[in-house]
């Protein structure tokens, strides 16, 4: 389309010229394009862009749930919501918890997914589909339903501790202990997310030309060396994609504690998203908006950092 329009329109004619068949066609195309975009743009504007902007606006006010009938009567408080947030011990706690979850959860999920992908890609020939379907199955489950099962398994005298007892380990009260509640969340998150990354990594591994690996083998590189020196570097773009996807998801960490621990015990699984949701529940809309923007900035920053870190070595 673009090519054709350019070919027809005389090169000297300014784009904004409102006469001639080419301009008329361009106008017509634009009208058609707007009609095609209208349904999406309308709902995108109402349900995404407007909330996004008003949330930013709200974070500079003392908006409370009681202000809904008269949204423009609220007081402008500048950065007060943000300064108050960083002095709020519970919010700081929620940031630390989120970092814990992200810092341990992302490397762990990636390592497990990569191990599964490498094993499925190279080491076996049969039942590949069975394994792939099995490892991916947790991804399709509803978090509410899964939470029920996991709470049942993680009870102090539940299945996990029974299995641990069989090999002589006395398991903790997983969800009731401040030390073990977060590892439990991470375990569950790895279980639920490794499938997605495994599929992405599998696709990446299949894109690596076999000749390169074989060349390294001819040169005398061992299996581990081939993996570290050849496969991993060639997988860098895929690993980056996986890391970014996972961080956008994991930084928003919320549903697991919401359905498993209610953020407890003693706020040990309270995340930034969960803190925000609680403030929403208390009617502190201004505070909730400010907290959510802190999270947004964190997600954007981490994504940028990851792109830089992965790119520099190329």
């Amino acid at each position: 389309m673009t090519v054709l329009t350019r070919a027809v329109a005389p090169a000297a004619l300014p784009r904004s010229a409102g006469h001639g068949p080419a301009a008329a066609r361009r106008r017509r195309t634009a009208v058609v394009a707007y009609l095609f975009s209208l349904p999406f743009i309308a709902s995108f504007a109402i349900f995404m862009v407007f909330p996004l902007i008003s949330s930013l606006g709200m974070s500079f006010t003392d908006f409370r749930s009681t202000d809904i009938p008269t949204p423009f009567a609220v007081a402008f408080v500048g950065l007060d919501q943000y300064t108050a947030l960083f002095q709020n011990e519970q919010f700081v706690r929620s940031m630390v918890n989120t970092l814990y979850f992200v810092g341990v959860g992302i490397p762990l999920t990636m390592a497990v997914a990569l191990a599964l992908a490498v094993a499925l890609n190279g080491a076996i020939t049969r039942f590949r589909t069975v394994f792939r379907v099995g490892f991916y199955a947790p991804v399709v489950t509803s978090i509410v339903a899964v939470a029920v099962v996991w709470r049942f398994i993680l009870q102090p005298d539940g299945l996990l501790n029974t299995l641990l007892a069989a090999i002589g380990i006395t398991g903790p009260d997983w969800l009731g202990s401040t030390a073990w509640s977060m590892p439990s969340m991470i375990l569950m998150a790895v279980w639920r997310n490794m499938g997605t990354l495994m599929i992405i990594f599998l696709a990446g591994l299949q894109g690596i030309p076999q000749e390169v690996v074989e060349a390294a083998e001819v040169d005398g590189a061992g299996a581990w060396q081939r993996f570290v020196r050849v496969t991993l570097p060639m997988l860098r773009p895929t690993l980056l994609l996986g890391a970014v996807l996972l961080s956008v998801g994991y930084l928003q960490f919320f549903e697991e504690p919401f359905v498993m621990t209610k953020g407890g015990p003693l706020d040990s699984t309270l995340s930034i998203s969960y803190f925000t949701f609680n403030q929403f529940g208390f009617g502190n809309y201004g505070t909730a908006s400010a907290a959510s923007y802190v999270l947004f900035v964190a997600i954007a920053l981490l994504s940028i950092v990851q792109f830089r870190a992965f790119r520099t070595k190329e």
Binding site: M48, P51, L52, F254, S273, F280, S292, L295
Partner: peptide, 13 residues
């Protein structure tokens, strides 16, 4: 990249 909680409150309004 926008986290769900950012639009949650105004969306409800």
């Amino acid at each position: 990249m926008v986290p769900g909680v950012v639009t949650f409150v105004p969306l409800f309004v």
